[in-house]
Design a protein around this nucleic acid. Sequence first.
DNA 1: CGTCAGATTATTTAA
DNA 2: TTAAATCCATCTGACG
Length: 528
Amino acid sequence: MASLELTEYERKRLENIRRNEEMMNAFKINSKAAELSAATKRQRMGSKSYKVSPEKKPKTGSPVIIRRSLRTRGIPPDAKGLGEGFVEPPNGGIPPDAKGLGDGFVEPSNGTPKPKRLYRPSPCVLGPISMSDAFRGKGTDRVLIDLVLDVAKRQQLSSASIKEEFDIDNSLMHEKYLVKGGCKSEPLDWPVKVEKCEIESGLDLGSLVLKPENVARVVPGRIMLVRFFPCNDARMIVTGNKFGNVGFWNVDSQRKNAIYLYHPHTGPISGIAFRQSCLSKASLISFRSYFFLCYDGFVRLMDAEKEVFDLIYSSDDGIFSLSQRPNDLTSLYLGKGRGGLSVWDERIGKPSSEWILHENRINTIDFNSQNPNIVATGSTDGMACIWDLRSLNAHNPRAVKMESHKRSVHSAYFSPSGSSLATTSIDDTVSILGGPNFEDTSRIYHNNQTGRWISTFRGIWGWDDSYIFIGNMKRGIDVISPVERRVVKTLQSPHMTAIPCRFDAHPYQVGTLAGATAGGQVYLWTSV
DNA sequence: CGTCAGATTATTTAA
DNA sequence: TTAAATCCATCTGACG
């Protein structure tokens, strides 16, 4: 079926992985001792640290199905193998009863969970996964696939007429920004000189409501990301969770069961983006923590035509953030490892350039809507930076603007007009940079102490520059006015029974706002 | 300087 | 109704 073609890069990587595997195996021989010492250590520590969950066996007496990749079994990844190489454990990616080892990982030999440090990485498939294999819902996902294809088809038809206009737009952008700046390292057209905000959405805050039917549990566990499918006549929500599940919720569906759950990844989903050139494909990114083995940064592309989650890139480092440059549809900008920004080029199938921009991981990457050379990053190292890609020196990258927070920065987003930047930090501030050079800074106090169980807050812009939406620890959504420099309203509802921490504003419907929680719920606020 | 334990926090689900 | 389980975030502070 799907042939497994490896690029040079991937082949090298596999070789690496195999070597590591060998080392791992060698290590395992001595692991009894390590286990013992670890165990005694744990006991000595006594009081704290979560107990290893009680031995967990499949409910039935049926033989344990072990899910192992080619890699784990040391089988060279040739084209076959794939079919039988991937067996789902009973109950797949859904963290069973919330205990156990998250991913349904079962230790082959004796069923005793080993100390974490010794876990091998979750088995991964180094190639495409068919959507039906990844499907975790009841019934069939045919309806969803058809819907996605249908939307794509209609989009293509209607965009045929828009296409020319779009191309012109693109070339204008080039002329305006690329050609002008050129490759010179001379002064560029910084400041950005964005025309004063002319976007006006006309949102009436008072009209926002949460209807009971607009609440759903879309995925199990903690949601990392929520995004609207970019279609103006539909309300389709896509979420990614901590376990590598991806859930689709077709809100407008008349069907009772309009939620479709997949498990294409083995680690937290850290980015969701839609391929702008072809909407039948949504690209989904996952990272697995860099704390364990370091090779599990995967990028998969969901292809509704081929009905697969294709593996398009995998990195030894974790991948934490993703953005697409507005005028460049064949590249993905990835936040990788400790502070890396990597440009993955679809045409060559590997990174075309990489910079180390921060001292710690990059949590968000956001391009300026007015100037595609200008990009903002927010990092755990406490900095939010604005970069000019034309002048980005490979060895000594210099930001054109830096905003320093006392602690980790969890988001840095440009406003819809491109004239402001909002940064959210765990130091309990939301910072707004404005003015022609982004030199006017105002700081707004906001409680961002989400603790361990709630995903960090990220203030997002609404449909124009007038409001920022951000989670509130008291089960609300705070609305910040950058002009008034304060929280002007807190959206609350009896139906919002948990803290919404991640948001997305519908790209075409003003007032349609999705909030996602640590328990897998999504709240869809609408304007009446 | 790096590593690692400890504390923090909310939501779900089993009891 | 209550208690147990969560364990890939982050800072602090102890320890080599």
